[in-house]
Design a protein around this nucleic acid. Structure first.
Lengths: 219, 219
DNA sequence: AATTATTTTTAGATTAATCTAAATTACAGT
DNA sequence: ACTGTAATTTAGATTAATCTAAAAATAATT
């Protein structure tokens, strides 16, 4: 069982290593967790002993499979709470991080599965980052701004960057919602506005500003 | 600023002193927070220095006004989370405590005010205990067993003593719920059973046993 | 390749919260 | 008022997480 502090180190290692690929240096980790390198040296030896990272002196660390699983559990909790805060408590997406940093450490498997269901099993957080499922599986298809797609390509709306009431109301008006199937019909080079088709039904025009604030996953 | 551990001590002192009235002994407190008396001795000296309790050696402790305020903030959070867990995440009454013990320590004034609004500003938790408002004010009208009321008096159901599924199902069947308006129509001296009217609508009979397990607040 | 600079690790201290064991104080019953 | 028991406090250790300062290893530069 990891302490709250150990969880934070592990999560930082996971993020800095971009999902477990790169080696993470002591100094980089110290900055990420706001401690001194000496403290990190101590801690990574403990985490190595616990089996969640592999560490060789002076060579930095990597998460093990076990560590990755633990990190993803914390990340899952963090992102689910963010969804809750934005969707139900009207937080802005730039206000949620600090609170989610605390909520992510609450220990209750039941709580997190119920929260997931309550939120409708979302697969992205308010920033568009994917939410790992209960097994740790993560949807790895990257999310792009709708504005970046070229005519002819299709995808699904996964998130919005701007979650202000004004923007959400506008989305409503357009008939655009999380999960909606969209296809880019045309793109105006001059102002980057677009013509898109929603759910193979209605065709609408959207401005560059709107297209930048909609995150999609290409098919 | 109090640590999480200090908050737990303070909350325990508040509860054991029944809202700040009685002196709390070292041993009682040790049992409540699952530590040894020696640890309590250390901690209460620290809490005294911090000004949240007043302590004289060998005489036990009492919360100060400042301490009471801090304790009520934690209790407010605890009970609001309990409401959330039961009403929105389908927890049972007996499952919420452990999780709420963790959630009560989350630090974010914005979060707790938004949660309060989201829940519709409830004034009792799922066990019927009153929820202090943001200023710490608590509904202080005492709760009585319904059985203690005399014919003619009216009140609101605030809690149940027995929260077993059997009893709750019986409550449902009777149409009695937390917050229901009730009026005592008649009382049988012989067996202490009662005739009561719920929400000025339906009139029912309840046994002494049932009337003892329903807590009401008189109007 | 040698020297300097940077990064990382170790050694030794510190703080918060806890414990056991021993000492002290309060209380209760004769 | 005395004495034994119970409650409480102190003393000294322990554990987790941190720090500073110094030592060791690696990397960079001439």
């Amino acid at each position: 069982m990891l302490s709250l502090v150990e969880e934070n180190y592990l999560k930082a290692i996971y993020h800095l290593s971009e999902g477990g690929h790169l080696q993470v240096s002591t100094n980089a980790l110290a900055e990420a967790v706001h401690t001194k390198p000496a403290s990190v040296s101590d801690m990574i030896q403990k985490l190595d002993r616990k089996g969640v990272i592999s560490y060789t002196k002076y060579q930095g660390v990597k998460v093990t499979d076990e560590g990755k699983e633990a990190a993803l559990k914390v990340i899952r909790k963090h992102r689910l709470w963010e969804v809750f805060l934005v969707k139900h408590l009207n937080f802005n997406w730039d206000q949620v991080h600090e609170v989610a940093e605390q909520l992510e450490h609450i220990r209750s498997p039941l709580l997190i599965e119920r929260l997931d269901a309550f939120l409708g099993h979302p697969n992205v957080d308010p920033h568009g980052d994917p939410i790992p499922d209960a097994t740790g599986a993560i949807n790895t298809k990257p999310q792009k701004q709708l504005q970046q797609l070229s005519p002819g390509s299709e995808g699904v709306i996964r998130a919005v960057k701007d979650s202000s009431p004004e923007f959400l109301q506008h989305m409503d008006k357009l008939g655009a919602y999380l999960g909606a199937q969209i296809k880019v019909m045309d793109k105006v080079a001059f102002d980057s506005s677009m013509k898109i088709r929603i759910d193979r039904a209605t065709t609408i025009f959207i401005s560059k500003e709107v297209a930048q604030n909609i995150l999609v996953q290409e098919n």
